[in-house]
Design a protein around this nucleic acid. Structure first.
Lengths: 150, 150
DNA sequence: TTAGATGCAAACGGTTTGCAGGGAA
DNA sequence: TTCCCTGCAAACCGTTTGCATCTAA
């Protein structure tokens, strides 16, 4: 079985984004694709300012307004996820389809760990029934400190 | 068995706060007690601005700076809990000892519902073991819309 | 007496908005 | 050609900070 390279996967992502833009009558501007590319070229979490500086370093002409604007689109089609993590600015990460997870944050460093627990789906189902609601998204984050080595 | 009135419970809270202030060499100023009283006299969630306006309406002379300052102390001794709920300003609620709960937020109105699920404690224990950390606090919030009545 | 608190107002910083110019359709 | 998007800069707004004054200890 031939393993797909990251380039091929990114092609699919571009097509997915294109379809979303067309479906919602949004223009397919080069800026939007450049931002998408930049996001999927890096790992882990990021905030707007970091992304802005990174793109400036890569000699792209881009404004913060367009970044915020495009993030809204990427959130809308589910290619990116937004987190608040307690501070008063947002952090994002590219959505890893089929790899749902939640977060643990170190109080001192802010370092982010990821974990997955199937029981969350069960809790979610319960909440939907109890309140007669449809849950669109959720956030579960633990905060703490590393234990002393024994 | 005689049921305790809210006044009597509040006396205990005041004593608890006083002990915390003394233990940490903080002054017992009238402002701090007034803020404490105001918070425990109202139900549900609130933000700083709402609290500020409410106190102004009650003819108290208070500044936002002192409110933020005092919230820090109340958080420090666990009498109050802080939430971020995705917006970029904080919301608080008085801690209800022995009544742990999490939140469901309506996407459209921002209305807050509370629920409790014991499985969260189990997930928490797992995370502590997996990462060899000590969890100090956490946040679980579901977001969604009310289902159409059938 | 004095170091910590307060009220006020200005500063801060992430996000949003207004607007003239540019480019996708 | 149209009008949605972009870059830029200013506005916005919740929070933090600086400072003169006040007061709990």
């Amino acid at each position: 079985m031939i393993k797909k390279g990251p380039e091929e996967n990114f092609e699919k992502i571009k097509i997915f984004f294109t379809e979303y833009l067309e479906r919602n009558s949004h223009r397919k501007t080069p800026e939007r694709y450049t931002i998408l590319k930049e996001i999927f070229a890096t790992e882990g979490h990021f905030d707007i300012e970091t992304l802005y500086i990174r793109m400036k370093n890569h000699k792209y002409r881009v404004s913060r307004a367009t970044l915020y604007n495009t993030m809204e689109l990427l959130l809308g089609c589910g290619l990116v996820t937004k987190h608040q993590f307690g501070t008063n600015y947002a952090q994002f990460e590219k959505a890893m389809m089929f790899k749902q997870h939640d977060h643990f944050i170190f109080n001192d460093t802010g370092e982010v760990k990821e974990f997955y627990d199937p029981r969350i789906a069960a809790i979610r189902a319960n909440v939907e029934n109890d309140f007669n609601v449809e849950i669109t998204h959720y956030s579960l984050t633990f905060y703490g400190n590393s234990r002393l080595k024994k």
